[in-house]
Protein backbone atom coordinates (compact mmCIF):
# COMPACT_ATOMS: atom_id res chain seq x y z
CA UNK A 1 0.00 0.00 0.00
CA UNK A 2 1.51 3.29 -1.08
CA UNK A 3 -0.17 6.34 0.45
CA UNK A 4 1.34 8.81 -1.95
CA UNK A 5 0.04 6.86 -4.92
CA UNK A 6 -3.40 6.43 -3.36
CA UNK A 7 -3.48 10.15 -2.55
CA UNK A 8 -2.76 11.23 -6.10
CA UNK A 9 -5.32 8.78 -7.52
CA UNK A 10 -7.95 10.30 -5.21
CA UNK A 11 -6.83 13.84 -6.02
CA UNK A 12 -7.23 13.16 -9.73
CA UNK A 13 -10.81 11.91 -9.29
CA UNK A 14 -11.73 15.00 -7.29
CA UNK A 15 -10.24 17.30 -9.89
CA UNK A 16 -12.10 15.54 -12.66
CA UNK A 17 -15.37 15.67 -10.72
CA UNK A 18 -15.27 19.37 -10.01
CA UNK A 19 -14.15 20.18 -13.55
CA UNK A 20 -17.06 18.41 -15.19
CA UNK A 21 -19.81 21.00 -15.05
CA UNK A 22 -22.46 18.67 -16.47
CA UNK A 23 -21.86 16.12 -13.77
CA UNK A 24 -22.10 18.75 -11.05
CA UNK A 25 -25.35 20.13 -12.41
CA UNK A 26 -26.89 16.64 -12.71
CA UNK A 27 -25.82 15.85 -9.19
CA UNK A 28 -27.61 18.87 -7.82
CA UNK A 29 -30.66 18.72 -10.06
CA UNK A 30 -31.60 15.04 -9.99
CA UNK A 31 -32.54 14.70 -6.30
CA UNK A 32 -34.39 18.03 -6.39
CA UNK A 33 -36.44 16.87 -9.36
CA UNK A 34 -37.42 13.67 -7.60
CA UNK A 35 -38.26 15.39 -4.35
CA UNK A 36 -40.05 18.48 -5.55
CA UNK A 37 -41.58 17.33 -8.81
CA UNK A 38 -42.33 13.65 -8.38
CA UNK A 39 -42.62 13.87 -4.60
CA UNK A 40 -44.85 16.97 -4.57
CA UNK A 41 -47.39 15.30 -6.83
CA UNK A 42 -47.53 11.99 -5.02
CA UNK A 43 -47.60 13.53 -1.58
CA UNK A 44 -51.21 14.65 -2.10
CA UNK A 45 -52.46 11.15 -2.90
CA UNK A 46 -50.59 9.27 -0.27
CA UNK A 47 -50.79 11.53 2.77
CA UNK A 48 -54.38 10.78 3.49
CA UNK A 49 -53.73 7.09 4.06
CA UNK A 50 -50.54 7.23 6.10
CA UNK A 51 -48.87 9.04 8.93
CA UNK A 52 -45.90 10.97 7.60
CA UNK A 53 -45.71 12.99 4.40
CA UNK A 54 -44.59 11.28 1.25
CA UNK A 55 -42.04 13.96 0.54
CA UNK A 56 -40.46 13.23 3.90
CA UNK A 57 -40.55 9.53 3.11
CA UNK A 58 -38.68 10.20 -0.11
CA UNK A 59 -35.71 11.97 1.49
CA UNK A 60 -33.87 8.81 2.65
CA UNK A 61 -34.64 7.27 -0.74
CA UNK A 62 -33.29 10.25 -2.60
CA UNK A 63 -30.13 10.21 -0.49
CA UNK A 64 -29.78 6.53 -1.42
CA UNK A 65 -30.40 7.27 -5.08
CA UNK A 66 -27.84 10.06 -5.14
CA UNK A 67 -25.26 7.79 -3.56
CA UNK A 68 -26.10 4.96 -5.95
CA UNK A 69 -25.75 7.07 -9.08
CA UNK A 70 -22.71 8.89 -7.83
CA UNK A 71 -20.91 5.73 -6.72
CA UNK A 72 -21.59 3.76 -9.85
CA UNK A 73 -20.93 6.74 -12.06
CA UNK A 74 -17.59 7.47 -10.42
CA UNK A 75 -16.38 4.00 -11.37
CA UNK A 76 -17.03 4.79 -15.01
CA UNK A 77 -13.63 6.46 -14.76
CA UNK A 78 -12.08 2.99 -14.74
CA UNK A 79 -13.76 2.13 -18.03
CA UNK A 80 -12.85 5.54 -19.30
CA UNK A 81 -9.22 5.08 -18.22
CA UNK A 82 -9.08 1.72 -19.91
CA UNK A 83 -10.56 3.05 -23.12
CA UNK A 84 -8.16 5.97 -23.25
CA UNK A 85 -5.17 3.99 -22.05
CA UNK A 86 -4.60 5.87 -18.82
CA UNK A 87 -5.27 2.74 -16.78
CA UNK A 88 -2.06 1.25 -18.13
CA UNK A 89 -0.07 4.22 -16.88
CA UNK A 90 -1.23 3.11 -13.42
CA UNK A 91 -0.83 -0.61 -14.03
CA UNK A 92 2.86 -0.42 -15.04
CA UNK A 93 3.75 1.69 -12.03
CA UNK A 94 5.33 -0.07 -9.05
CA UNK A 95 2.06 0.24 -7.16
CA UNK A 96 0.02 -2.69 -5.97
CA UNK A 97 -3.40 -3.34 -7.52
CA UNK A 98 -4.85 -2.98 -4.05
CA UNK A 99 -3.55 0.59 -3.85
CA UNK A 100 -5.21 1.47 -7.14
CA UNK A 101 -8.49 -0.11 -6.06
CA UNK A 102 -8.36 1.61 -2.67
CA UNK A 103 -7.63 4.96 -4.31
CA UNK A 104 -10.59 4.63 -6.65
CA UNK A 105 -12.78 3.36 -3.80
CA UNK A 106 -11.88 6.18 -1.48
CA UNK A 107 -12.44 8.80 -4.18
CA UNK A 108 -15.81 7.38 -5.21
CA UNK A 109 -16.89 6.98 -1.61
CA UNK A 110 -16.01 10.50 -0.51
CA UNK A 111 -17.67 12.10 -3.52
CA UNK A 112 -20.83 10.11 -2.80
CA UNK A 113 -20.82 10.99 0.88
CA UNK A 114 -20.41 14.63 -0.02
CA UNK A 115 -23.43 14.54 -2.32
CA UNK A 116 -25.56 12.37 -0.04
CA UNK A 117 -24.89 14.48 3.04
CA UNK A 118 -25.56 17.71 1.17
CA UNK A 119 -29.17 16.57 0.75
CA UNK A 120 -29.71 16.70 4.51
CA UNK A 121 -29.87 20.49 4.20
CA UNK A 122 -33.25 19.99 2.54
CA UNK A 123 -34.67 18.25 5.61
CA UNK A 124 -35.83 21.36 7.49
CA UNK A 125 -37.69 22.59 4.40
CA UNK A 126 -39.85 19.47 4.28
CA UNK A 127 -40.47 19.40 7.97
CA UNK A 128 -37.85 16.88 9.09
CA UNK A 129 -35.61 17.67 12.00
CA UNK A 130 -32.01 16.51 11.65
CA UNK A 131 -29.89 17.17 14.71
CA UNK A 132 -26.14 16.85 15.19
CA UNK A 133 -26.54 13.28 16.38
CA UNK A 134 -28.58 12.26 13.32
CA UNK A 135 -26.15 14.00 10.99
CA UNK A 136 -23.28 12.20 12.66
CA UNK A 137 -24.89 8.78 12.28
CA UNK A 138 -25.87 9.61 8.72
CA UNK A 139 -22.26 10.43 7.96
CA UNK A 140 -21.15 6.93 8.90
CA UNK A 141 -24.07 5.30 7.16
CA UNK A 142 -23.62 7.20 3.92
CA UNK A 143 -19.91 6.33 4.04
CA UNK A 144 -20.69 2.64 4.44
CA UNK A 145 -23.34 2.58 1.72
CA UNK A 146 -21.19 4.69 -0.63
CA UNK A 147 -18.24 2.41 -0.10
CA UNK A 148 -20.21 -0.75 -0.81
CA UNK A 149 -21.80 0.65 -3.97
CA UNK A 150 -18.51 2.06 -5.25
CA UNK A 151 -16.89 -1.34 -4.71
CA UNK A 152 -19.80 -2.94 -6.56
CA UNK A 153 -19.39 -0.45 -9.42
CA UNK A 154 -15.65 -1.05 -9.51
CA UNK A 155 -16.21 -4.77 -9.76
CA UNK A 156 -18.50 -4.26 -12.74
CA UNK A 157 -16.24 -1.66 -14.34
CA UNK A 158 -13.20 -3.93 -14.09
CA UNK A 159 -14.92 -6.35 -16.45
CA UNK A 160 -16.16 -3.81 -18.98
CA UNK A 161 -14.10 -2.66 -21.90
CA UNK A 162 -16.39 -0.10 -23.48
CA UNK A 163 -18.44 2.87 -22.42
CA UNK A 164 -21.35 1.39 -24.36
CA UNK A 165 -21.31 -1.64 -22.08
CA UNK A 166 -21.33 0.69 -19.15
CA UNK A 167 -24.56 2.33 -20.33
CA UNK A 168 -26.22 -1.05 -20.66
CA UNK A 169 -25.24 -1.89 -17.09
CA UNK A 170 -26.50 1.48 -15.98
CA UNK A 171 -29.97 0.69 -17.32
CA UNK A 172 -30.22 -2.98 -16.41
CA UNK A 173 -28.66 -2.97 -12.98
CA UNK A 174 -28.66 0.52 -11.57
CA UNK A 175 -32.22 1.59 -12.38
CA UNK A 176 -33.84 -1.61 -11.03
CA UNK A 177 -31.58 -1.29 -8.01
CA UNK A 178 -33.02 2.14 -7.42
CA UNK A 179 -36.68 1.26 -8.03
CA UNK A 180 -36.52 -1.94 -6.00
CA UNK A 181 -34.79 -0.47 -2.97
CA UNK A 182 -37.69 0.96 -1.01
CA UNK A 183 -36.61 4.45 -2.06
CA UNK A 184 -39.98 5.22 -3.67
CA UNK A 185 -42.37 2.87 -1.83
CA UNK A 186 -42.11 0.35 1.00
CA UNK A 187 -40.85 -2.98 -0.31
CA UNK A 188 -43.24 -4.97 1.87
CA UNK A 189 -46.09 -4.27 -0.56
CA UNK A 190 -44.30 -5.75 -3.59
CA UNK A 191 -45.28 -9.07 -5.20
CA UNK A 192 -43.17 -11.97 -3.92
CA UNK A 193 -40.75 -12.36 -6.85
CA UNK A 194 -39.84 -8.66 -6.77
CA UNK A 195 -39.51 -8.78 -3.02
CA UNK A 196 -36.71 -11.32 -3.50
CA UNK A 197 -34.83 -8.81 -5.57
CA UNK A 198 -35.18 -6.24 -2.85
CA UNK A 199 -33.81 -8.73 -0.33
CA UNK A 200 -30.57 -9.11 -2.31
CA UNK A 201 -30.26 -5.44 -3.23
CA UNK A 202 -27.77 -3.75 -0.90
CA UNK A 203 -29.43 -0.39 -1.49
CA UNK A 204 -32.61 -1.70 0.19
CA UNK A 205 -30.71 -2.03 3.44
CA UNK A 206 -28.90 1.26 2.94
CA UNK A 207 -32.12 3.19 2.39
CA UNK A 208 -33.75 1.34 5.28
CA UNK A 209 -30.93 2.40 7.58
CA UNK A 210 -31.37 6.02 6.46
CA UNK A 211 -35.09 5.73 7.24
CA UNK A 212 -34.26 4.56 10.76
CA UNK A 213 -32.32 7.75 11.33
CA UNK A 214 -34.35 10.31 9.41
CA UNK A 215 -37.99 9.21 9.68
CA UNK A 216 -40.16 8.87 12.76
CA UNK A 217 -40.69 5.23 13.70
CA UNK A 218 -44.01 3.50 13.22
CA UNK A 219 -46.49 3.94 10.39
CA UNK A 220 -46.73 2.53 6.90
CA UNK A 221 -43.78 4.51 5.58
CA UNK A 222 -41.23 3.81 8.32
CA UNK A 223 -38.17 1.54 8.15
CA UNK A 224 -38.93 -2.15 7.56
CA UNK A 225 -35.85 -4.09 8.70
CA UNK A 226 -33.86 -4.08 11.94
CA UNK A 227 -31.15 -1.42 11.90
CA UNK A 228 -28.45 -3.94 12.83
CA UNK A 229 -29.35 -6.17 9.90
CA UNK A 230 -29.10 -3.17 7.56
CA UNK A 231 -25.60 -2.32 8.72
CA UNK A 232 -24.35 -5.92 8.68
CA UNK A 233 -25.69 -6.66 5.20
CA UNK A 234 -24.17 -3.53 3.68
CA UNK A 235 -20.88 -4.16 5.51
CA UNK A 236 -20.55 -7.74 4.29
CA UNK A 237 -21.52 -6.73 0.77
CA UNK A 238 -18.84 -4.00 0.83
CA UNK A 239 -16.12 -6.39 2.00
CA UNK A 240 -16.98 -9.01 -0.63
CA UNK A 241 -17.07 -6.48 -3.46
CA UNK A 242 -13.73 -4.97 -2.42
CA UNK A 243 -12.13 -8.39 -2.59
CA UNK A 244 -13.68 -9.22 -5.94
CA UNK A 245 -12.73 -5.94 -7.54
CA UNK A 246 -9.13 -6.10 -6.34
CA UNK A 247 -8.90 -9.53 -7.93
CA UNK A 248 -10.48 -8.31 -11.17
CA UNK A 249 -7.54 -5.98 -11.85
CA UNK A 250 -4.96 -8.74 -12.13
CA UNK A 251 -3.38 -9.01 -15.57
CA UNK A 252 -4.78 -11.42 -18.10
Amino acid sequence: MSYRAAYVIVLREFKRFFRQRGRLVTTIARPLIWLFIVGAGLTKIIDARSHGSYMQFMLPGVVGMTILFSSIFSTISVVWDREFGFLREMLVAPVSRVTIVIGKLFAGTSLSVLQGMALLFIAPFIGLGVGVKEAFIMFFLTALVSFSLTAFGLFIAAHLTSLEGFNVIMNFIVLPMFFLSGALYPVGNLPAFLRWVTFINPLTYGVDAFKHVLLPSGGALAAEFPFVLDVIYVGVFAAAMTLFSARAFERR
Binding site: R4, A5, Y7, V8, I9, R12, K15, R16, R19, Q20, F84, G85, F86, R88, E89, M90, A93, V95
Partner: peptide, 18 residues
Protein backbone atom coordinates in the same frame (compact mmCIF):
# COMPACT_ATOMS: atom_id res chain seq x y z
CA UNK B 1 -2.15 7.60 -22.44
CA UNK B 2 -2.24 11.07 -20.95
CA UNK B 3 -5.26 12.38 -19.05
CA UNK B 4 -6.77 15.05 -21.28
CA UNK B 5 -8.73 16.53 -18.39
CA UNK B 6 -5.57 17.31 -16.46
CA UNK B 7 -2.92 19.89 -17.24
CA UNK B 8 0.55 18.90 -18.44
CA UNK B 9 1.91 19.63 -14.99
CA UNK B 10 -0.80 17.57 -13.29
CA UNK B 11 -0.11 14.61 -15.55
CA UNK B 12 3.56 14.68 -14.59
CA UNK B 13 2.81 15.20 -10.92
CA UNK B 14 0.46 12.23 -10.98
CA UNK B 15 3.28 10.13 -12.35
CA UNK B 16 5.82 11.31 -9.76
CA UNK B 17 3.52 10.54 -6.85
CA UNK B 18 2.59 7.20 -8.35
Amino acid sequence: TLDNELTAYENLKFHCYL
